Simulated scan of single mutants.
Amino acid sequence: MKRRTYHMMIAGLLTATLYNTIANLSNLSVTDLDDWLASNNQTVSIQTAVRTAQEKEQTNDSAVEEEQSSAASAAGYSSLKDTLTLSNYPKKTVTATGYTAGFESTGKTPEHPEYGITFSGVPVQRDLYSTIAADIRVFPIGTVLFIPDYGYGVVADTGSAIQGNKIDLYYPSVDAVYDNWGKKTLEVYVIKRGTGKLTAEDLNHLNENQALQVFRNEILKE
């Protein structure tokens, strides 16, 4: 017991000496040092939380890609829909229409400097993962949806007419809109909720998913 008490006293003296040394060198009070340490501990906690969230998001992305890879490589899968177990994802009923980059949908002509550029800054495209418009209060920028009979849509755009549970699906031409879509009310699946931003690199990464290239040509023909 005496030895333990002795060690505790030595530790206390060393701690006090350390505080005094730092205070003298930096012109800070002990209270200031306590505040500084608390602040740095809080910063570390915030950084840890952010890092954990990023790792979780990467893990979710990897799980989706692994599921797609396994399904696409198996015999008998003839459609993009078969590559996911859609019952694993939350769904939402929406009214979906089609749009183009043209004047009839956006009021812009090819001469306009922002022609074909979405709200997120990435160009419109119809691909494995196509750009779509949504109410970003419902589906934030970057949200990935699976839309039956259309495929994957990534929320990249918004619009004054797209309010609430409405989405607008990009097609390269008016004819493609009428031939392939029109207007439908249906259930869509939320594969990944967006963070509020989307880059061209993000979209390219999605579209280069090797497991899904077998389905890409069919989409690009529209």
Rank of each mutant, 00 (worst) to 15 (best):
A23F: 03
K81M: 03
T195Y: 00
R126I: 07
Y99V: 14
Q58V: 05
S120C: 05
I141F: 08
Y150D: 06
R216Q: 15
S173M: 12
L198Y: 06
E218T: 12
F119D: 06
V122R: 01
P123G: 01
E222A: 12
A11E: 08
E218G: 13
P113I: 03
L145G: 10
D61Y: 06
S173H: 09
G102N: 15
E55R: 11
E104K: 11
E187K: 10
I136G: 02
V138H: 11
T43C: 03
E114A: 13
N88P: 02
I22C: 08
P113V: 04
G164S: 12
F103I: 12
D168R: 08
F103A: 10
A176F: 03
A11R: 11
R51A: 08
D168G: 10
E222P: 01
L33M: 15
S29R: 00
L220K: 14
L86D: 07
Y115L: 06
R3T: 08
Y152V: 04
Y129G: 08
A53H: 08
L169M: 09
Y171T: 00
D35E: 15
Q125P: 00
L14I: 13
N88A: 13
T185E: 15
S69Q: 04
T131L: 07
L186H: 04
L14F: 11
P172K: 13
T106W: 09
P148Q: 14
D35F: 13
P172V: 10
T5M: 15
T93P: 04
S70Q: 14
G159Y: 07
W36L: 11
L18M: 14
A156I: 01
G153Y: 08
F103C: 04
L13T: 04
L145H: 12
N165P: 11
T93A: 06
Q58A: 13
E187P: 05
G76Y: 02
N165I: 04
P140V: 07
D149W: 07
S70P: 02
T17A: 10
L198S: 08
Q58F: 01
E111R: 02
K108V: 02
R4A: 14
K166P: 04
E66L: 12
D82C: 10
A101P: 01
